[in-house]
Amino acid sequence: MTTLHSPAGTWQLNRFPPRTADTLQAWDAADELLHQIIAQRDDQRPLLINDQWGALLVPFAGLDVTSLSDSYVSHCAWHHNLRHNNLPETLTAISPLDTLPDTTDVVYLKIPKSLSLLEFQLAKLAAELPESTQLFAAAKSKLLTPAVRSLFEQYCSDVDVSLIQKKCRTVSAKMRSVALDPERFMSSWELPEFQLTLHHHAGVFARNQLDIGARFLLEHMPAAGVEHAIDLGCGNGVLGLHYARLSPSSKVTWVDESFLAIASTLRNIKTNLPSAAANQYQAEVDDCLAHSADQSADLIVCNPPFHQEHAVTEHIARQMFRDSKRVLRKGGELWVVANRHLPYYQPLKRLFKSVHQVAQNSKFVIFKARG
C-alpha cells in the first residue's frame, strides 16, 4: 500500500498524517499516468498543482520544482514524503493566491473535484504563465465532463484528451494568454436570519449556499460568555462569526486546512465584525489543531468533513476530536454537528467523560462533549 512503482521510479509514499494500517493509498491511477509522461520528458522547472500527497513531486526532487495546493495537509505531506525517501527538500510550496513562477516550463495538474477551483486555477495559469506553456492534466474519466473539457478549451489551445487507461484520462494542452479578474471567482450571499454576508473563494465548502448541517448548529449554538472559542474546520467561518456576534467579549479563532477557506474567513470577519478589538479574532491554516496550545480554549464548535477529495473517511473527524480533547481547558466543551449515520458517538465517548445529544432532526445530530 505504500510502495509506488512507476516508469519514473520507485518510492515509499504515505498519506499525512501517517496512520498505522492506513487502508487509503497515497496515489492513484491518474498519478501513474502522469508518471508515464514525466518519464519520457526532461523537465527542469515544473509546476505541480493539486498533488495531494507528493506522488508527482518525488520524480522532481532536487530540481527547481514548485508545488501548489489549497491544502495545508498536502504541504505537510510533500515534506514528509521527501524526508521519508531521503530526497532533497528543494521544493517551493505555494498556495492558490500566491504568484506563479514565470520560469515554469511545464505544468502537471491533478483535476480537482470542484469545478470552480479548476476554473480559477486554469485562469491563473493563463494569466501568469507564458503563452504556450505545456500543461498535462489527469483525473478519473468520470471527472472529465463536458463542462471540464469546455474549461480547458477556454483557457488552453491544442487540447488533446487521451483514451481511457485504468479508468482515467490525461489531457495535453498549451496555455492561452487570458487576463485574470480575481473578483469574478468570488461568490457571496446574504444570510439575513443571522445578519451575515458571506464571501467565498473558489472551491470553498458551501460556496453557493449555507450547509444544512451548519444551519442546524447555528440554530442550537452554545451559550455566550466563554473566554476563547474555536471554529474548527471553519470553511467560510459561519459558525465562529455567529458565535462572535452572540458573545462579543469572546476571543474567537477560526482554523481550517484550506488556504482559500481561511482567506474567505478573513474577508468575512472584516465584513461582519468590522469593529473587532485588535487580536480578538484570528484565522489560521493548520492540520486540525496541531499548532494550538494545550488547554487553551473553552469551546470548540465543529462541522467535521467526511470526505478528503474523492475518499470517504472518518479519520479527519477523529483527529479533530483528539486534538480538541488536548486543547480544551478543564470544563471546556466540544460541540459537533454530524450526519446521523456517521458513527461519532463512540469515538467521542472514549475521549470525553460525558457526551450528550443536544438536538437531532431527520438528517443531523448535535453532540456536546465535556471532560
Rank of each mutant, 00 (worst) to 15 (best):
P7W: 01
W11G: 09
N14Y: 15
T20I: 13
T23I: 10
T23G: 06
L24N: 09
Q25G: 09
W27E: 00
D28H: 00
A30S: 15
A30K: 11
D31Y: 05
L34P: 08
H35P: 02
I37W: 07
L47R: 04
Q52Y: 13
V58W: 11
G62V: 08
G62S: 09
V65T: 10
L68P: 03
S69H: 01
S69D: 03
S74N: 11
H75S: 10
N86V: 10
L91A: 05
I94Y: 06
S95N: 06
D98Q: 13
T99N: 08
T103A: 07
T104F: 09
I111R: 00
L115E: 13
S116D: 14
E119D: 05
Q121D: 14
A123E: 07
K124L: 02
A127C: 04
L129D: 00
L135A: 10
L135Y: 06
A138Y: 03
L144A: 00
L144N: 07
T145I: 09
V148F: 05
F152H: 01
F152I: 02
E153S: 07
Q154V: 08
D160S: 14
D160P: 02
S162H: 03
S177H: 06
E183P: 06
R184G: 14
L191N: 08
P192L: 07
P192H: 12
L198I: 14
H199D: 01
H201A: 09
G203V: 04
G203Y: 07
A206Q: 04
D211L: 07
D211T: 03
R215I: 04
F216T: 00
L217S: 11
H220P: 03
I230Y: 08
G235L: 13
G235P: 05
L239M: 11
L239A: 01
L239I: 05
H242E: 10
A244S: 12
A244C: 02
R245L: 10
L246Q: 14
L260P: 09
P274M: 00
Q280C: 12
Q282H: 15
E284I: 11
D286G: 10
C288P: 01
D294F: 08
Q295G: 10
S296G: 02
A297F: 03
L299D: 00
L299E: 07
I300Q: 10
C302I: 07
N303W: 09
F306K: 00
F306N: 02
H307F: 07
H307R: 03
Q308R: 12
T313R: 06
E314I: 02
R322T: 15
S324K: 05
V327H: 07
Y345G: 08
Y345K: 13
Y345R: 14
R350H: 09
K353R: 12
H356P: 01
A359M: 00
F364G: 12
I366W: 08
F367R: 01
F367I: 05
G371K: 03
